[in-house]
Every structure is written in structure tokens, then in C-alpha cells.
């Protein structure tokens, strides 16, 4: 099994056929902040109609990659292609009509109510003279309904719980009515129940409307549960890419996260479950450093 995209059987498919299935793609993408490269010559295709989760340790370049996909960051090398065109040559407004993006922990001005926040998602569809058309109205209502925030419409964001607030932000991105949706850690700072609530919502959207969703997630088990494809990154490069079962192996966890863990499989869905091991419950007393130099010692058998 080789998770690298390059060796994917899909490569056999002619380019034209592939183009139909892949709207968003990174080619030799290098990203840098102030000259310091964060992502190195990375190739990645986002398949249409899938939920893709990007995982990886802190500082591996996940959010940076997502920002480049959302045209928020200009590549230092290579390019991001949207429908075969380099996204940085496209007008901001056109991209905004195709790709919706929700950054990590966005901030809203005090006293903004949910309906107004969501209505601001209609910005790419508005002009200076057409500020609140019927389509705008309908789209905002759909977004509010889909996220279950219609009842909260008149409440200000400050009054909401973390999960409600996150749903309101997602509603704003939804109101943009783009087929591609990029979410940067939408479950950040939420308790487990609220994480599930948000991810269920994402899955609903995906199932009901066939939206392509790319999200950055920290919780590996949740990523495995909700995503069709996982992309594991380390040090600005893709370490593995494929279905959750292909990617989430004990070997990969050790290599990418430096984490000793047991991977089990959830009974009903068969999704991989990551059970991290504490240093204190190591099967043998050897320091972790030595364990790492060994060739993948059996820490537990996958079921």
C-alpha cells in the first residue's frame, strides 16, 4: 500500500477525465512566511465531492496549506490550480464565488448578531447597488436552517456557546454558496459533544449537497470517522495520503507525530481509532528514543 497520491491508480486516468474530478489542486506548491519556507514543493489533489481532512503535528504547515488553497497566501513557488487556472491570477471575487473559507478562530465585532454575520457571507454576490436581493435572502435562510441557527438569528455572537458560535461561522461560509468549503480547525476549543455536532453538520452538508470539504483537524480519531480521505503532513511535506485506514497506522503516527499509539478499529464503522500510549504505560521500560530507532516494534496488533 502506498498512500502517495503520485502512485495512486488514478494517475492512469487521462488528464481530461481527471480534471473533471479534481477542481482544486496544488502543484509543486512552496509556501513561506517572511522568506522562511513552511511548505515545500507539495503536490496534492482535492477530489471532488469528498471530505478531506488534513492532519499533522503543530507547525507542520496544515493551516498554511489551507490558506494557500483559499487564496489567502501567495505561493513562493508552484501554484494552486482551481479548475485548471492558477488561483492567484483569478480575481478575489471570482474565487470567493467558488471557494468558501473559514479561518482558524475568526473574530467578530462586538454586538454582531448571527443573521448579520451570515448575511456578510453574501458579499461576493453583492454589488454596490444590489445589497440584499431575494437570492441573498434565500441563501442566508438556507444557511441558517442547515446549521440550525435560525432560532439564534437575532442573538449576538457574544451570547452564544462555543458550539453555537462555530455553527454560526460555518453558516456564514455556507451562505457564500460555494461548492468548495475550506475549514481550518472548525472544532477548535470545543468540547467533544460540540466537536461531534460541528462535524456532523459538515457531513450533512457534504451528503445533502455534494460539497467538497477540506478541513484541518487535530483529533485523529474524529478525522478518521468523518473524512473520506486523510492527508498527513509533516514538516511541510505530505507524509501520507489516502483513506483513513490507509493513513492512520501505528508506524505513521510514530513517524509523523512522534506518538506511540495503538490503532484499533471501531466495531460498527470500521474507522480507525487512535489510542495514544503514555510514557508510563510503555510495554517495556526502554526510553522512547531507542524505541524509535528500532524498526517498528509491535506495540499492539491492529484488530
Amino acid at each position: 500500500m502506498s498512500p502517495r497520491k503520485r502512485q495512486d491508480p488514478m494517475d492512469a486516468v487521462p488528464d481530461a477525465a481527471r480534471a473533471a474530478r479534481v477542481r482544486l489542486r496544488a502543484e509543486g506548491l512552496t509556501l513561506a512566511y517572511d522568506g522562511t519556507p513552511v511548505v515545500h514543493a507539495l503536490d496534492l489533489d482535492i477530489e471532488d465531492g469528498t471530505v478531506t481532512a488534513i492532519i499533522g503535528p503543530n507547525g507542520c504547515g496544515k493551516s498554511t496549506l489551507l490558506r494557500a488553497f483559499g487564496r489567502l497566501l501567495k505561493p513562493a513557488g508552484g501554484q494552486v490550480l482551481l479548475d485548471g487556472r492558477p488561483v492567484h491570477r483569478l480575481p478575489t471575487r471570482e474565487v470567493a464565488g467558488l471557494v468558501g473559507m473559514l479561518p482558524q478562530s475568526p473574530v467578530a465585532p462586538e454586538g454582531l448578531c448571527v443573521a448579520d454575520l451570515v448575511a456578510r457571507g453574501r458579499h461576493p454576490h453583492q454589488t454596490w447597488y444590489r445589497r440584499w436581493s431575494r437570492e441573498d435572502e434565500a441563501a442566508v435562510e438556507r444557511a441558517l436552517r442547515a446549521t440550525g441557527t435560525l432560532d439564534l438569528a437575532e442573538r449576538t455572537l457574544d451570547e452564544l456557546s462555543g458550539g453555537q458560535r462555530q455553527r454560526a461561522w460555518i453558516a456564514m461560509a455556507l451562505a457564500q454558496e460555494t461548492e468548495l468549503l475550506l475549514l481550518d480547525e472548525p472544532t477548535n476549543h470545543l468540547d467533544l459533544a460540540h466537536q461531534m455536532e460541528v462535524l456532523d453538520l459538515v457531513l450533512d452538508l457534504h451528503r445533502d449537497t455534494g460539497r467538497t470539504v477540506v478541513l484541518v483537524l487535530h483529533d485523529l480519531s474524529l478525522a478518521a470517522r468523518y473524512a473520506d480521505r486523510l492527508v498527513a503532513m509533516k514538516d511541510g511535506r505530505i507524509a501520507a495520503c489516502g483513506t483513513p485506514a490507509e493513513v492512520l497506522t501505528e508506524k505513521l503516527l510514530r513517524e509523523v507525530f512522534g506518538l506511540r499509539a495503538v490503532v484499533r478499529h471501531e466495531e460498527r464503522t470500521g474507522a480507525p481509532l487512535v489510542i495514544p500510549l503514555s510514557r508510563h504505560e510503555a510495554p517495556r521500560p526502554a526510553p522512547a528514543r531507542d524505541a524509535a530507532t528500532d524498526a517498528a516494534p509491535p506495540l499492539g496488533d491492529p484488530v
Binding site: R254, E255, G258, L259, R260, R279, P287, A288, R289, A291, A292, T293
Partner: peptide, 12 residues
């Protein structure tokens, strides 16, 4: 490999 320096390894 060798990147799996956990707390124990580092402090040592």
C-alpha cells in the same frame, strides 16, 4: 526516524 523524542528523551 529518531524524531520521536518524547519528554523523557529530551530531558535526558
Amino acid at each position: 526516524m529518531g524524531e520521536s523524542g518524547t519528554g523523557a528523551g529530551m530531558s535526558a
